[in-house]
Amino acid sequence: MIQINQRLKKVSEYIKGDYLADIGSDHAYLPIYAIENNLTARAIAGEVIRGPFDASVKNVRAHGLESVISVELGDGLTVIKTDNAITSITICGMGGPLITKILRAGQEKLTNRPRLILQSNIQSQPIRVLLQQLNYTIVDEVLMTEKG
C-alpha cells in the first residue's frame, strides 16, 4: 500500500465515482492510493512534464496497477479523452490562477459534470469566479497546513 501525505489524504475523501482523472498527478500517488483503497475503479494520471510522467509510469508499474491506471503525457485536461466517463477530477498542489487556466482551457471536458476536487496553494479567488461561470457550486472547503 502506498503512503500519501495528509493533504492528499484529505483530497481523497472527496473522490466520487468509478473514474478519476488526476491532473498534475505528482508521480501518480493519489490515483494509486485511490485504487488501493477502493475509492475509485479506474484512473488517469496526467502529467505535463516528462520526468514526473516517467516517475508515474514507474510507480503505477511497481504497484501492479497498469490495467486500471493510465498514465498520460499532456497539458491539463487534454489527457481526458472525450468519451471518458470521468466522475472526479483532481487538480492539486498548484496556484489558483494555474488551476483556473487548466479548467478554462479544458472546459469542454466538463460536459458530464464530473466532481471537481481542487486544491490550490495560493490565490483561490480566480477558481471561485470560474466555478460560478461554469455553474459549479462549492459544496465544501477545508483549510489545512502541512509542513508549516
Rank of each mutant, 00 (worst) to 15 (best):
A41R: 07
I15S: 09
S88F: 03
I69R: 10
I35Q: 01
S70H: 06
E141R: 06
N135Y: 08
N84K: 03
T111L: 12
T82A: 10
D83F: 06
T100C: 13
S120K: 03
L8K: 00
Q123K: 02
T78S: 15
G93D: 12
S88G: 11
V11K: 00
V79D: 13
Y19F: 13
D140A: 15
T145N: 11
I44H: 11
I15L: 06
G74R: 06
H63T: 02
T40G: 12
Q123L: 03
A62V: 04
L116F: 07
I122E: 14
R128F: 07
E72T: 10
S12H: 01
P97N: 05
F53Y: 15
E108P: 09
L116I: 11
K81T: 07
N5H: 02
I86W: 07
L39A: 10
L30T: 06
D54Y: 02
E108W: 03
P126T: 01
S56E: 08
I23G: 10
E141Q: 10
S67Q: 12
Y33F: 12
I127R: 04
N37E: 09
F53S: 07
F53R: 04
K81S: 11
P31Q: 03
R115T: 10
V129N: 10
Y29F: 10
F53A: 07
I23T: 11
V139K: 05
L77A: 08
I35K: 00
I99L: 09
S88W: 01
R61E: 15
G64Y: 04
Q123D: 13
V11T: 12
S67R: 08
I99D: 10
L8F: 02
Q107E: 14
T82H: 08
P31K: 05
K10L: 13
L39S: 12
L73S: 05
L143H: 11
